[in-house]
Design a protein around this nucleic acid. Structure first.
Lengths: 327, 327
DNA sequence: TTGTAGGCGTTATCAG
DNA sequence: CTGATAACGCCTACAA
């Protein structure tokens, strides 16, 4: 609760000098020492609110994600947090709950609170980030590209879809369906496009689109869409789930129906930290969520520190763990 | 970006009046209308940083949790968020990562940033919350009680342990082990105590303590401790896992060894949203994580709004879903 | 290198 | 009910 004035008084210097000690501006060795000692004795720490008001920017960054209950995003959050904290920044985790309106509200709050920057895994392809841009505050898009010229950290989505489908073919499955996220989410479309290219080339279906389903990126989305394709004639004998939660939903449904892999083929794009699986029975296309977080935070911090170079695009690589157990 | 002065000028009133309009202090109908209109036209929103500096308290609350990657805590976070947001507060999610030092740092940040209050699921039983208390800022303990006179939202831990063990006995298991969290975490000890009372009364073991293991509250903790008790002679035929992640670890190990429930009995205290289980094969003692969050946030907001009554204790009830499938 | 002083945008106090 | 004015705690020209 001590202020810069009290420290100054105790150290026998001016408040400005105290401020300088905490901001890297040149101060003589001698006075610097005096100030540090006085600060120590008074238990002084600069008031971040006052600093934010004066500097027009706080040491807080906002991370906006669509689903805080999805382990993929919490893992990503861990990555952001690790980097931010090391640089002295706090992270505000904002859950947009797949709702563009909530998302917009959070961007506004970030602007109003003078936060230093925003990392966003956007629901909308045109999130309302103008308020940040207007104030010249950096924004980094993660996981999902957005229609603005900002730094991006994304994955090779199409390739992950291809790899997932191909792995199932190599494991011997003959009719591979695909369940993916909302049609207006780019990652959902791209992963599906990868799947479609592969099954089309393999000649698995007359009408591949019948075996493709869009839903929300959650557990019930996986259950529902898998149930739909299972009802087709002929039914599929395998499925590509375009994210972790849909994979969980699919596996739940399959286990209820006694179709446990490898009896039915499953490839999941994402990790399944909380399931109990025979490792060789399903294909995992692992996404380095935490790394995406660290990369995004690193980019953002560079911008916060004044980097004005052209927008960058970082593509993070997935790794494949193919199913080897055959039916 | 407009300020209170610009709004005042446009509305033909003083800045003080504009401020009053945004703070519920009495203002004539007429001027109030003028102010609102001017604000609308200028797209004015009060600057929260300035407000926080002046009022010595921001509209942000901190939620400190030990493991952001545990669905139990993210679910709790959702509850907090829902209530806080409805009241115009933002939530800063802080991951203490089971580390008392990080935890202390976050409390300090909350104090330094003049946050309105803190909800903490504490790692330490004596978290360093003095900085908040000194400033007269409210703190609510959730999930784990702490050694301070603050509001608490907790569960009937001992009872949940008893219920879990009893359910397995009723399902026909004869030697029930228990794997729980760190010995210095109250919830871990209490749940184990509930288990111990039941198995002791049932006369299952000469030395029950041999079948009790403490570890971290994570997946690997569950795996490791279950492996240990499985190596005992005689081995157990069932286990109580004291939290969700240990339950996941236990189930993973069991499935690798072909001991899938109900072949081996499992009761888990917590929910398993991302597993694929036969619902009747294991006992779930469900913990209403989200409700704990809403309750805690409600208490905190009451304190923020000036409630000075004696510290309250809210005990949230679990519900039991017993295993019915027998071996 | 150091000190003085003004201002960041609000709100609270005190007159009127 | 309304207006002027002084903080809140810090940073940064500007001057020395």
């Amino acid at each position: 609760m001590a202020t810069i004035f009290e420290v100054a008084a105790r150290a026998g210097v001016s408040p400005a000098t105290v401020s300088r000690v905490y901001n890297g501006t040149p101060v003589s060795e001698e006075k610097s020492r005096l100030v540090r000692q006085a600060a120590e004795e008074l238990n002084f720490v600069p008031n971040r609110t006052a600093r934010a008001l004066r500097r027009q920017a706080s040491e807080v960054i906002a991370l906006i994600i669509p689903d805080i209950e999805n382990p993929y995003f919490t893992s990503l959050a861990r990555g952001v947090e690790d980097v931010a904290q090391a640089a002295g920044y706090s992270v505000v985790l904002c859950n947009s709950d797949d709702d563009p309106a909530k998302e917009a509200t959070y961007v506004d709050i970030a602007a109003l609170e003078n936060m230093a920057g925003v990392i966003i895994a956007a629901v909308s392809e045109q999130p309302r980030i103008e308020r940040m841009i207007d104030r010249n505050r950096p924004v980094v898009a993660v996981d999902r590209p957005i229609a603005f010229e900002v730094d991006e950290v994304i994955m090779a989505n199409r390739d992950s879809g291809e790899v997932a489908a191909r792995s199932l073919i190599e494991a011997g499955y003959r009719r591979i369906a695909c369940i993916t996220g909302p049609a207006d989410v780019g990652t959902a479309r791209e992963r599906a496009a990868g799947w479609e290219a592969v099954v089309t080339e393999a000649g698995q279906f007359d009408r591949p689109e019948d075996y493709l389903r869009f839903a929300n990126f959650r557990v019930e989305g996986g259950r529902e869409t898998l149930a739909e394709v299972l009802a087709l004639d002929p039914p599929p004998d395998a499925v590509v789930a375009a994210n972790n939660l849909m994979g969980v939903g699919a596996l739940q449904l399959l286990s209820e129906r006694g179709l446990i892999p490898p009896k039915f083929g499953v490839a999941v794009i994402g990790e399944l930290p909380f399931t109990t699986l025979t490792p060789t029975a399903i294909t995992l296309v692992r996404l380095p969520a935490r790394e995406m977080g660290t990369r995004a935070a690193t980019l953002l911090l560079e911008r916060i520190n004044g980097d004005k170079s052209a927008p960058r695009e970082v593509i993070v690589q997935h790794t494949v763990e193919p199913a080897t157990a055959l039916r």
